[in-house]
Design a binder for these strands. Structure first.
Length: 702
DNA sequence: CTGAGCATGAAAGCAGCT
DNA sequence: AGCTGCTTTCATGCTCAG
């Protein structure tokens, strides 16, 4: 019954490609052991648990009964797969087939034979062919343009090598122009293709038909960055033209930022060159301006707060950006030399954006980590102050891009484990001063056992956790906690075996489980999450809000004490109170943080799409007897310049713009649509930028 | 039809090792 | 420098009961 090539049901790959980090392995391994199976694979160490699910129990039942996994007849389909027969109708089968090929990659002859079935135009192969693949946004992963275009690029309709097309689409050229250029020059002459594409761009050979007609290609799906909400109405031809032009402009902006230019530089270039200018001309203009020092004079001078220098975070993207630009626009003669040089450069060239370890931001309150110095670009100067938040662990290049849009300010990466009993690793981009911060009072308990004293009784000595992991929107199932209870109980009164401990600890850390009874773990209750996140107890309770909605809302919010520490510098600056524009407010993390600091909320414009969340904030506002005005708006995309002007005329402008845009497409927890900043939800970042930038322009005018 | 419950990896960074 | 294993992660979409 046992086969050397037994596929792992959990990751759907064959033995050699199966990694140990898959939770299902733990489930399966443990259950297999408990059912007294004799599986030879299990005899090896935990790290070599591979392909277990193919094992049958002694009584012939499937090993995964407890996991409710379907059984598989290994003698039929899977054996066929092992022999290299594909099952295109099934993803899982296809994966197993890929796994098989991976296992045999060393066998060149055999792999060649499979080339009829599989597209072997991988990056490796392109390199072998001598085609270099330029980085896009510091990553080999397709950038936003490609994300949007890749479906087309890889479709069967495209007769050319998809990587070659992708390569140029990555540079910002439109796909159909790329295909046209390939048609003219052949696939292999990349130099000639590039030149042709540059010529197209300069001559603007196919202007509206390519860009406007398919304007979604490089922009976010939600779009609207530069549009007023008046666009809701049916478009007149004139409006349509305007919309197309704006759409094209933001497409160009996004692509040029992908290439490494700062959003600010691109905007200046657009202003100076006027409308209807091609991307190539804009790029040339920026390069020329930079060589002449035009932009430098505007963008890299003194800080808004006259805070001191920030030596280890200066000179950050500038070099990389310029290299990328040169890489794309270099003349023939120097291109190859420079490209080779750039490719040899270490990847950590922009190491300023690598995540710090420990993640202490610009300094911690207890002086254990000295406050660093930073120097903000002049373009980042307020008013208003602004504060942007998102998950620290994003797909590559995302924070670099966010930073470029937000005036080249480097993110402050902080783990909330230094402020509470739960971790929460987040990046914050803000133009706030960073000296003389203080903590909001009272300081919450800092360990799990202090926050949840009842768990002490049941907490086993072999569970060494004192801090919880990140609070997320999903919680463990009852089935899982039951499996854990059974696993521990099997070991009797003594200490569980090392393997059981490892399994239990893996699940406990993954799902933030705590000990609530003898051998019994449970997910956190919503009110416990509220405490851990710095909210008042029952902040999300009542008003017909379901438990699931509470978990979802809490999983998406700020850690109040962390944010309050950063915002504390505002207290002296605004003794009379503060006007804030709160974007993506959620359940009001920013408002609660300011309130906790004792900063009076004069006027709060809160933009939040979820009605439930708006009700939670409204309820908190009323319960805390706020004396100011709360204006609630549903959709950030509907916030227009006219709205901003209206609010400014009502109460004179905003002191702080604060918010964290959706992380759905950035989070590591997202298995299906981790599409990066251009994802369906996360692209709303551009609305944060749009609104902030419009407001800054208006307030400068004032 | 709605919503709660549940199962579903992969990407990225880090540490340790060779 | 490159490999391997370990750890962490503001989620999504399917199923099924009410």
């Amino acid at each position: 019954m046992y086969s050397t090539y037994m596929p792992c049901l959990a990751c759907k790959t064959l033995n050699n490609s199966c990694k140990g980090g898959n939770s299902n392995h733990w489930d399966i391994k443990y259950e297999v052991q408990n059912q007294g199976m004799s599986c030879p694979v299990l005899a090896s160490s935990v790290n070599s648990v591979k392909g277990i699910s193919g094992c049958s129990t002694k009584d012939g039942s499937n090993a995964n009964d407890l996991a409710d996994t379907d059984s598989i007849d290994w003698d039929t389909e899977d054996e066929l797969e092992i022999q290299g027969i594909s099952h295109p109708s099934s993803t899982g089968r296809a994966s197993a087939y890929e796994g098989f090929l991976a296992c045999h990659k060393k066998d060149g002859e055999k792999v060649r034979k499979e080339s009829d079935i599989i597209d072997w135009d991988s990056e490796d192969e392109l390199e072998i062919k001598g085609l270099s693949i330029p980085p896009c946004s510091g990553s080999l992963k397709p950038g936003p343009c490609v994300t949007a275009c890749k479906g087309e690029a890889s479709s069967s309709a495209c007769p050319y090598n998809t990587q070659a097309v992708t390569q140029f689409v990555n540079m910002g050229f439109h796909e159909h122009l790329v295909i046209k250029a390939i048609e003219e020059n052949g696939e292999k002459d990349t130099e000639a293709i590039l030149e042709t594409l540059l010529t197209y761009s300069v001559l603007d050979k196919s202007p509206q038909e390519s860009h406007v007609g398919t304007s979604k290609s490089c922009s976010s799906e939600s779009g609207n960055y530069f549009l007023d909400d008046s666009s809701d109405d049916e478009l007149s031809p004139q409006n349509e033209d305007q919309t197309n032009q704006l759409s094209e402009e933001r497409e160009i902006l996004s692509c040029l930022v992908d290439m490494g230019y700062s959003a600010e530089d691109v905007k200046i270039a657009m202003e100076r060159c006027g409308s209807g200018v091609s991307m190539a001309e804009l790029a040339d203009f920026i390069c020329a301006a930079q060589l002449g020092g035009d932009f430098d004079a505007q963008s890299t001078e003194l800080s808004v707060d006259n805070e001191d220098s920030f030596p280890h975070q200066r000179q950050q993207n500038d070099d990389l950006s310029r290299h990328k630009k040169r890489k794309i626009w270099m003349s023939d003669r120097t291109k190859n030399r420079v490209w080779k040089k750039i490719e040899k450069k270490p990847v950590n060239e922009d190491k300023e954006l690598t995540l710090p370890n420990p993640m202490v931001g610009f300094g911690l309150p207890d002086d254990s980590w000295a406050v660093v110095e930073r120097r903000l670009p002049e373009t980042a100067a307020g008013p208003p102050y602004f504060y942007y938040e998102n998950v620290a662990f994003t797909p590559k290049g995302v924070w670099e891009k966010i930073s470029k849009f937000l005036y080249d300010i480097k993110p402050e990466f902080v783990d909330s484990m230094f402020f509470s009993a739960a971790a929460r690793k987040r990046g914050y981009i803000h133009n706030l001063p960073i000296h003389n911060r203080f903590r909001a009072q009272p300081i919450p308990p800092q360990t799990i056992q202090e926050v949840l004293p009842a768990t002490k009784t049941w907490w086993p000595s072999w569970d060494s956790r004192t801090k919880l992991n990140c609070i997320q929107t999903a919680v463990a199932s009852a089935r899982l906690t039951e499996r854990i209870r059974k696993a521990v109980e099997k070991c009797g009164d003594g200490t569980p075996t090392r393997d059981v401990q490892k399994y239990v600890m893996y699940e406990c850390k993954k799902w933030n489980l705590v000990w609530v009874g003898r051998n019994k773990v449970a997910p956190l209750e919503p009110d416990e999450m509220e405490m851990l996140l710095g909210f008042p107890k029952n902040h999300t309770r009542g008003g017909g809000i379901s438990r699931t909605d509470r978990y979802k809302a809490l999983g998406n919010t700020f850690q109040v004490d962390t944010v309050a520490y950063h915002l504390s510098v505002l207290k002296d600056k605004f003794p009379g109170g503060i006007n804030i524009l709160s974007l993506f407010s959620g359940i009001g993390g920013a408002e609660v943080a300011l309130h906790k600091l004792g900063i009076r909320l004069k006027n709060v414009v809160s933009v939040e799409i979820s009605r439930t969340n708006r009700e939670i904030l409204r309820s908190w506002w009323e319960q805390t007897n706020q004396q100011g005005n709360l204006i609630e708006i549903a959709d950030v995309q509907q916030v227009s310049t006219a709205n901003l002007e209206q609010w400014m005329s009502s109460f004179g402008g905003f002191d702080l713009v604060i918010g964290g845009s959706p992380c759905n497409n950035l989070s590591g927890s997202n298995r299906r649509t981790r599409d990066g900043l251009e994802g369906e939800h996360s692209s709303l970042f551009y609305d944060y930028y749009r609104i902030l930038d419009q407001l800054r322009t208006l307030m400068r005018g004032v």
